[in-house]
Design a protein around this nucleic acid. Structure first.
Lengths: 197, 197
DNA sequence: CGTTAAGTACACCGAATCGTGTGCCTAAGG
DNA sequence: CCTTAGGCACACGATTCGGTGTACTTAACG
């Protein structure tokens, strides 16, 4: 995962401060929230001098944005690549992945300014993700792919937000809804008897 | 609404500082976020001396909690009382009300500590609201009222969170899903041809 | 009238915020 | 070897944060 840490590859000079900063930030932002995490605490957690921190990132805002940028290749996207699943199964597989509060929602709520780079990024990500759902819906033969994709995206965000408030996992509820929507949107087919759970 | 403000009723002494504080807080918390709103700015906006502020509320935490407590009698609950609607229509009417980011979700995301009074309050509110949806679902004759109520609640939270991230209204998407769910959960009936919009 | 409670004005506190300036060190690369 | 870039330690600064202490004014009630 960190090819800079020990291997003499790429710009092999440093001791990999940048990577440590980003991963520490992602963790702290997730566990404590963005606003509740100070730059001092952050540099301590990353075992990086504060000076180095500011040599890599112009400021906290930029650091936040960079953290969000690195989240994409995390977990979800690979679901869309799974060839062992039918398009229909792929749409539902997204609702099997349990996760803490979506960092993009967190950023959008914690940061008031809609023009903040992190919020623009969050918006872009959500749009891109919905687009992927729409594509899958189209592949699956949905009657109205745009609508189904947008609907599934809303379900995911709902589960994420609601889980945070209730302190309880609510993904199963979203999955049940998704099953209904997919059944309704796809032309009648065998296997429609999918578990509503 | 404010019987203290001018009328010589109750503890009719003060000039109604408390009410001004709360309504100013609700507005600022909504517009700027909780963490981005300082007590100084708040006392200025409420046209109340900072000292008075702290004579009414032991601290910011308590003020936040009180603000959330006052949100309930706002808009939504009255939908459940509308006798001119069928139970079924009542379930769907909830999705007609456009609003900014739900303050309870906002608090749950902005405040890291799950034991914070405001977060406990948010949880309680969401549970109570879902319970009311469940009741309406039962009245409407849903096959599984608990499930339908919980599902509709998730849709509302999803629309709220997603609207914040996308900077776009997404309630219509949630309403469309709700229509499908209600149609599926209620025993076949005339009028099932409700607009999916 | 006088009492009393509500509100005011303003300075002040320690702690935390993001961010810098300075000088030194150390390891990788040629 | 020496150069050089990445990193470090640490003090500092300006601002803001939530919250207080003190002494004063005002208005309602009896």
């Amino acid at each position: 995962m960190t090819e800079l840490e020990k291997g003499p590859t790429g710009q092999r000079r440093g001791r990999g401060a940048r990577e440590r900063i980003i991963s520490a930030s992602q963790q702290l932002f997730r566990d404590q929230g963005i606003n509740s995490t100070g730059m001092d605490q952050l540099s301590a957690a990353a075992e990086v001098s504060k000076r180095t921190l500011y040599q890599h990132f112009a400021g906290k805002d930029e650091l936040i944005a960079e953290c969000l940028r690195r989240f994409d290749p995390g977990v979800l996207p690979e679901v869309f690549e799974r060839a062992d699943l039918t398009p229909r199964e792929r749409l539902l597989a997204v609702f099997e992945i349990h996760a803490p509060l979506c960092p993009f929602i967190a950023a959008a709520v914690e940061i008031p300014d809609p023009e903040h780079p992190a919020r623009v990024l969050a918006r872009d990500y959500k749009l891109a993700f919905a687009a992927r759902l729409v594509d899958s819906a189209r592949e699956a033969g949905a009657a109205d792919p745009e609508q189904l994709g947008e609907q599934l995206a809303l379900l995911l965000d709902g589960a994420s937000a609601r889980s945070r408030v209730l302190n309880t996992e609510t993904l199963a509820t979203a999955a049940a809804i998704a099953a209904v929507l997919v059944d309704n949107a796809l032309p009648a087919e065998e296997g429609t008897r999918a578990s509503v759970r």
